[in-house]
């Protein structure tokens, strides 16, 4: 299990235990984290699991892939550290990962 912190737009923190091998999105949905709807079920096709990665963590979560880039580029509220969290696998290295939940998804 790996601890991941979701920070709501009002700064409330939700800490969840995520199962390795799943995705950060799964960890959010399984723990009823609000603001992560993940309509498409993790296919990188709906952009409803948008998160802002904590800056210190951003280089460690891997690169944005092409499909993710295409769909995120349509969002005017996209930021430098935006990711679709269905595309971020949970591993031991993610222990302590912190992501912010964008207000536009609430």
């Amino acid at each position: 299990m790996t601890k991941i912190t979701f920070v709501k737009h009002d700064d409330e923190e939700i800490v969840v235990d995520a199962e390795n091998g799943t995705s950060v999105m799964n960890a959010a949905v399984d723990n009823l984290v609000p603001g992560i709807d993940a309509d498409c079920g993790g296919e990188c096709a709906c952009a409803t699991c948008h998160v802002y990665i904590d800056e210190a963590w951003f280089p460690k979560v891997g690169n944005t892939n092409d499909a993710e880039e295409a769909i995120m580029s349509l969002n005017p509220d996209r930021q430098e550290t935006s990711r679709l969290c269905c595309q971020i696998p949970v591993t031991d290295e993610m222990e302590g990962l912190k992501v912010r939940l964008p207000e536009f998804q609430f």
Partner: peptide, 15 residues
């Protein structure tokens, strides 16, 4: 359980 799992809105960049 997962009511939004449907295709009525399409998916991807044209969703």
């Amino acid at each position: 359980a997962r009511p939004r799992q449907h295709l009525s809105f399409g998916f991807g960049i044209h969703r």
